[in-house]
Simulated assay, not measured.
Amino acid sequence: MERERTDLLERVERYYDLVPRAVATTEEVGPFTLFVPEEGTGWQFYARPRRPGSATFTPAAVERVLARQLALGLPRAIEWVADVTPSLLPAVRGAGYEPAHYPLLTLPPRVRVPPDPRARVLPPADPHLGIAFGAVRAGFTGRDDVEHQHPGRKPELIEQGALIVVASYEGSRLCGAGSAAPRGDVAELMGIAVPPGHRKRGHGSAITRSLVAACRERGVDLVFLTAGSDTAAGIYRRVGFVDTATACVLEIDG
């Protein structure tokens, strides 16, 4: 079982390094890779360990990459998997910071997850695409007033197969959304959110199930996500996801 878990996390790490490169340039800063998003993408990325598990991390290296982000006008942030790069946590703490810890969950391939009829995949020209991203923003900010958000390059990524967006509905009303970014046989579920007025009616589960089904239709056999809290993780555990590791996120400007 431990060998299987190690293999899963190695695949997750390769994915983390690959996925931002579709919309970002990279810069090596000591033992970190810094992803610099292209203008107009609407995404921000963290710095990540360049050689997970093998590099030497020091408080000085942490301060250096944070200073570089500041110089580039980027949010100062680092993310990593604690189980893969355990030496980074003491270095971050030595620099005077304390990261947040989040459950990283994976979905066993044997777990069958059918799509939910309330949720559907949005094509690149769907008029609800901007509303879907507005609902995600509202869900994370705790607001019910959903504003149309310009999708940026997301329709292009959907057309390329690099992004899947799913929205959940009650009748014709959009009640929440989320996305996934398939890369080969691995995909991360991201930004699953439901505005407060639509919560506790199963929309988070509906979005999750339909994203999983859409990913698997495209040949993905490793689906994973990072839950924003243990409470949120409970939604995904009920779908069939299992706790696999701990993600650490340091956000100074967020």
Rank of each mutant, 00 (worst) to 15 (best):
W43K: 03
P59A: 06
R3Q: 14
R173L: 12
G171W: 08
T106M: 08
F45V: 02
P195Q: 01
V136R: 00
V186L: 06
T41L: 00
H101F: 07
L189T: 00
R120W: 06
R143S: 04
E2N: 14
Y97C: 10
S179K: 07
Q149R: 11
V23P: 05
G94R: 09
Y16M: 14
R50P: 00
G197Y: 04
G161D: 01
A214Q: 08
T56D: 15
L104Q: 14
T106P: 06
Y46N: 03
V165Y: 02
E147D: 00
Q160F: 10
V239Y: 04
F35G: 03
L129G: 05
F57A: 15
A193M: 06
W43A: 01
P52F: 07
R14D: 13
G152H: 11
A232H: 10
R112P: 09
I164T: 13
R209M: 03
A162T: 11
A206E: 03
P182D: 06
L105G: 01
L9R: 14
R11K: 00
E13Q: 02
F57R: 01
A82V: 14
L88E: 07
G254D: 15
G171K: 10
G204K: 05
E170W: 06
Y102F: 13
E39G: 03
I158T: 11
G161C: 08
L250W: 01
A214L: 07
R93P: 10
G161L: 02
A177L: 08
E13W: 05
E156I: 01
R153C: 13
A91P: 00
V111Y: 01
E251A: 15
G202N: 01
R50V: 02
P108D: 09
A180P: 07
P195T: 09
I252E: 07
S210N: 11
L222F: 02
R14A: 14
P103Y: 02
L157N: 02
I207C: 09
A119H: 06
L66Q: 06
C175N: 05
F57C: 06
S87E: 13
E39C: 04
G202S: 06
A60K: 09
I131N: 04
E159N: 08
